[in-house]
Write a protein that binds this DNA or RNA. Structure first.
Lengths: 126, 126
DNA sequence: TCTATTGTCCTAGTTCACTAGAACAATCTG
DNA sequence: CAGATTGTTCTAGTGAACTAGGACAATAGA
């Protein structure tokens, strides 16, 4: 089961945070087709956001074809995202963890690491 | 000189995007103490956001002690962020680029890569 | 069938990001 | 000094995000 963590006051919309967390869990293989998302009321109780906000997040995921809402029973993962095959991800994760350890021992903070990745992904100096 | 790229419609506030881009440029060593940020009017002309929005971004950076606004002459980088020594960053960037190439040839999209990094940084399975 | 659970809708209202446009104030340059 | 450039302030308004609270509808399970 996925556990949502909504950071109010971070500036960006709660419904986007929820959506992103679902997508991310799908990419990492934590959520697979058929899995059930937390109940709207669950999320309300857990994260403190309003039911309409949760609904908005879920509706966007549904529009994107990623989940399917079934009244009375819950919201279920329907599609797939990314190439979340564990046999592909696992070795990559290991390699990344190694690099991260290196970066951290060189004194880099998490934000430095994110910045560096964004730079590399967007093609260097641009 | 830093070039801003504001993605309207991405959902999160323009002033946060501007602030983040300055912080990131500082982390990567593109902006160093004494460097001048683009003029408020420059950013307005370039990115299309309103002057007040740019001002809000700059004011937040100033409150954080990262920049200093001097009326009549511009806004200048004051503090430092991260450990942006090139002799430290360069080899790390190289190693990361290598890993990214590997991940991409394994079929991962950028979003997969971000998700994986977030997972690793937050300490694995959490 | 009855009941609990779930998603869904509705109305009303508040807060905040952002826009628009104008004016002022300090600094630099010639 | 004069003019251009820069940051700064102000007022007014729009739209979106979010809250609050209630009600309805479909499904699952006993």
């Amino acid at each position: 089961m996925v556990e949502f963590h909504v950071d109010r006051g971070s500036g960006f919309p709660a419904y986007l945070q929820l959506g992103q967390q679902v997508r991310e869990a799908m990419r990492l293989g934590w959520l697979q087709p058929g899995d059930r998302l937390p109940t709207v009321r669950d999320v309300v109780a857990t994260s403190g956001v309003n039911a309409n906000t949760v609904l908005k997040a879920y509706r966007e995921l549904e529009l994107a074809g990623l989940v399917e809402a079934r009244q009375g029973s819950g919201t279920f993962v329907k599609g797939t995202l990314g190439s979340a095959a564990p046999e592909v991800l696992d070795p990559l994760r290991e390699g990344l963890a190694k690099w991260v350890a290196e970066a951290r021992s060189a004194g880099l903070e998490d934000e430095d690491i994110y910045a560096l990745l964004r730079e590399v992904l967007s093609g260097g100096a641009q």
